[in-house]
């Protein structure tokens, strides 16, 4: 579709279950040096969904500040995760605790969860069997389940068939900063989940989750045709998280528009951009 000079291409909202996202970036709240930095980075990313974790309360006299003091709950939809869970039962427990917390806050994030069932502490790669089991149980419990997954296309289909509202393959291991390690796998997942020729639904949300280190990683993911990117460490652990958040936002925008703009095919040889005719140097 072409645009006129007066049309500025925009990013369409992304629908995940009952949630409408106006940004294609979902940003984590962990690992920042300070809550103030986190607050500014989130603002610069222009995300409207942020992920959080559920952990034991600190039971001590503590005048310390809490994460929630720095999150505008009217602005952000909270996406609670089940990070740190290594079996389905624990992930289901944590998901329900997160829902209970967000119900008290009146935040719309109470209805959904970022499901992580991890295989081990070294790789932090998902346990596909446990993830599938927990997904089924949480869907049956009425939750909107966004599944952190590996980049296995068949597993992605199995999770969708189990009722996942979104499948979120890792670009590379969590926090590794290696970007999109296997772009072809992401493209196959995209085709299987979103292409009607493969039984997919163009509106099924596919999000790359984890591994992003640089803005170009976000752009590449979006250029592959995924619907969004979820990241945390790439911003929080950057030397300047606020500038990096700004860059990630721009990268997401670029990749989104790039995928929809119909890139040229790659060729082995050059094709001149200036005309051959009319040259004054005819050699």
């Amino acid at each position: 579709m072409s645009t006129t000079l007066t049309d500025t291409p925009t990013i369409a909202p992304l629908q995940i279950g009952e949630h409408t996202l106006h940004s294609r970036l979902v940003v984590g709240t962990g690992k920042y040096d300070s809550y103030e930095t986190m607050q500014q980075a989130l603002a610069c990313s222009e995300c409207d969904v942020v992920t959080v974790a559920v952990r034991r309360e600190r039971l001590m006299d503590d005048q310390g500040r809490s994460l929630l003091d720095f999150l505008d709950l009217d602005r952000y939809t909270i996406l609670p995760n089940t990070a740190g869970c290594f079996d389905a039962a624990d992930a289901v427990r944590v998901a329900r605790l997160g829902r209970d917390l967000l119900e008290q806050l009146g935040n719309p994030g109470a209805s959904w969860v970022k499901l992580e069932v991890l295989g081990d502490r070294t790789t932090l790669l998902p346990d596909p069997v446990g993830t599938l089991e927990a997904c089924r149980e949480l869907v049956a419990d009425g939750m909107t389940v966004l599944c952190y997954a590996s980049d296995d296309p068949i597993m992605a289909v199995r999770l969708r068939d189990a009722g996942a509202a979104s499948v979120m393959p890792a670009g590379s291991p969590i926090g590794s900063g290696r970007g999109i390690a296997n772009p072809e796998a992401i493209v196959i997942i995209r085709d299987l989940l979103k292409d009607p020729a493969h039984g997919g639904d163009p509106d099924f949300p596919l999000i790359v989750d984890a591994g992003v280190g640089a803005p170009s990683d976000v752009t590449l993911a979006m250029e592959l045709g995924v619907d969004g990117v979820l990241l945390n460490t790439g911003i929080a652990s950057a030397a300047d998280p606020i500038a990096m958040a700004t860059a990630m936002r721009a990268a997401c925008h670029a990749g989104y528009l790039g995928f929809r703009s119909g890139r040229i095919e790659k060729k082995l040889y050059a094709t001149a951009s200036s005309p051959w005719t009319g040259r004054i140097t005819p050699h």
């Binding site: 984590g28 690992k31 992920t51 559920v54 952990r55 994460l67 990070a83 917390l101 008290q104």
Partner: peptide, 28 residues
């Protein structure tokens, strides 16, 4: 087992109970 926040006032703590109290923290 989760004690829903709406049922805390009507749920008694018993001897030997294992209680977990959790909150939201930064995470990815």
């Amino acid at each position: 087992q989760l004690v829903p926040w709406t049922e805390r006032s009507t749920t008694a703590v018993q001897d030997g109970d294992q209680i977990e109290v959790v909150t939201l923290v930064g995470g990815g």
